[in-house]
Design a protein around this nucleic acid. Structure first.
Length: 257
DNA sequence: ATGGTTGTTCCACAA
């Protein structure tokens, strides 16, 4: 079972990249974030022609998440529970073959002296609560996507430059660990415990990609039974190297069948 | 302190 996640930064601009990836890598599941389009504008036909079913939660201009599957989708849950006032499309769940796959786009939270930072932390509390609920239900699940958290300074090309960034705040990192300490396995760290600089994002500014100035902010968290099946988790940098690429690349995770 | 890029939109805003 091959699972992949990609923040596309506009699915309409990045459709060729997505189709090329599906055709070459043939993942069973692909989680997408930052669709930047409404649900009706999502290119379901092209992706359907490529052999994938889609669960989509779009939004005009910003955010938007989707989960694609080569196998039939048995159930879809749209949105992260816990705040009826929250209208941002950042969470979708898809059940395939008895496993719940979540595509999530955690709030960026910058700048930290604005209302955006407490929104990020509150959203993380709701994510932790939902994960706890799924564990209590003894569900098998995978949380994948753009977490907008660099877990440690080893995940940042220039920690000093990011010391005031929401992605690197002690509060953001503490909640990231709180999620993990529920009993989840962070796939990349579990298989590459001492690896430094396994970045998944390189911004568009200042030749960041060319210079290797990246951040590790895309992650997979696995529930206990799913973690028992973990065989691989890798960053696929080829997608970021393409023309007109997203600022993120693909993170993959392989589970024993 | 500022400027560097990209995407969506309607002009700044978000990242």
């Amino acid at each position: 079972m091959k699972i992949a996640t990609l923040n596309v930064n506009s699915v309409r601009v990045r459709l060729p990249h997505v189709l090329r990836y599906l055709d070459s890598a043939k993942p069973d599941v692909l989680l997408l974030q930052e669709l930047k389009c409404q649900t009706e504008q999502f290119p379901s036909e092209a992706i359907g022609d490529a052999g994938y079913n889609c669960a989509i939660l779009g939004q005009k201009s910003y955010n938007g998440v989707a989960a694609l599957s080569r196998h039939p989708i048995d159930e879809v849950v749209e949105g992260l529970p816990g705040d009826d006032e929250d209208t941002q499309s950042r969470w979708i769940e898809m059940v395939v073959g008895g496993v719940r796959y979540v595509s999530l786009y955690l709030p960026n939270g910058n700048p930290i002296d604005s209302e955006k930072f407490p929104y990020k932390l509150g959203w993380m509390d709701r994510m932790i609560a939902r994960a706890k609920e799924l564990l209590e239900l003894e569900e098998d699940f995978v949380l994948g996507g753009d977490f907008n958290v660099c877990p440690t300074d080893d995940d940042v090309y220039d920690p000093l430059a990011f010391s005031n960034d929401a992605l690197c705040q002690p509060e953001s990192r503490a909640k990231w660990r709180e999620l993990k300490y529920l009993g989840l396995t962070e796939a990349f760290d579990a298989l590459h415990p001492d690896e430094v600089g396994a970045y998944t994002y390189w911004g568009y500014q200042g030749g960041a990609w060319r210079r290797g100035n990246g951040l590790r902010i895309d992650h997979f968290f696995l529930s206990p039974h799913v973690a028992d099946r973990l065989v691989a988790c890798e960053v696929d940098k080829d997608v970021r190297a393409e023309e007109k690429a997203s600022d993120h690349t693909v993170l993959t995770c392989e589970l024993r069948d």
